[in-house]
Nucleic acid binder design. Structure first.
Lengths: 112, 112
DNA sequence: CGCAGATGTCTTGCATAGCAAGGTATCTTG
DNA sequence: CAAGATACCTTGCTATGCAAGACATCTGCG
């Protein structure tokens, strides 16, 4: 029929994208397109159209900080670093996720 | 600080509530408040304010059908039944969930 | 040199869905 | 007959992913 699958995927991402970004940045600093590619490969985001506005919001909220890095070769990149506040939010999300995810899993386990 | 935890929970629910309802109805027919209580206990919804509009949308989309049941004692209830189309959507969601959930789990596993 | 394409970042406008709060009607009980 | 429980639904708000497009810079090629 229509784009039912896209709608499903989009709505799941609405809940988790921000915290997947935080979790990635907890591992190491990354720049925009690098994050976008990592997430897109795993079905966690569709395009930069959602990622860049999200990163701007996070910067404003204080969960990430940024710095420009100009390599000798190639384009200048804005690198993102997680802050202490970001880490606190991430822990909060992980707690909620651990509460909800098993219930959803159980309900979906009955599906082939 | 603020209602960060509420915001997190709300956004996760945006992705999964509809399909948790479908999965429940795949088990057996239920009525509005019955669904609301089941879901609220497990942190999957906050109030009827999200459930009833959702059920109306689902009815319009054709994933559920309803019938009124007037018991000899007590209030008349509108019971919801999943349709074949609803089952198809549920399978679709289960597929997407199985793709995405492991990635989120892995990212959150690094959190205490 | 100059142009095409890759690599980067960002913006605009839209559609969707949870929710707090409030509203209505009916049934039971004292 | 009043009070509270049970049941359904609506209004207005807000947040967020995304398609599409804009812009700048770097690299390679003819």
């Amino acid at each position: 029929m229509d784009g039912a699958r896209e709608r499903i995927t989009t709505n799941i991402r609405k809940g988790v994208l921000e915290y997947c970004v935080l979790a990635l940045l907890a591992r190491r600093d990354m720049y925009g397109l690098e994050l976008a590619e990592w997430l897109a490969v795993r079905g966690l985001t569709a395009s930069e159209g959602s990622l860049y506005p999200l990163l701007a919001r996070m910067r404003q909220a204080g969960t990430v900080e940024t710095r420009w890095v100009a390599p000798e070769q190639g384009h200048a990149r804005r690198y993102y670093t997680i802050t202490d506040q970001g880490r606190a939010h991430l822990r909060l999300f992980a707690g909620v996720w651990r509460e909800i995810q098993p219930h959803v899993d159980e309900l979906m386990a009955e599906e082939t």
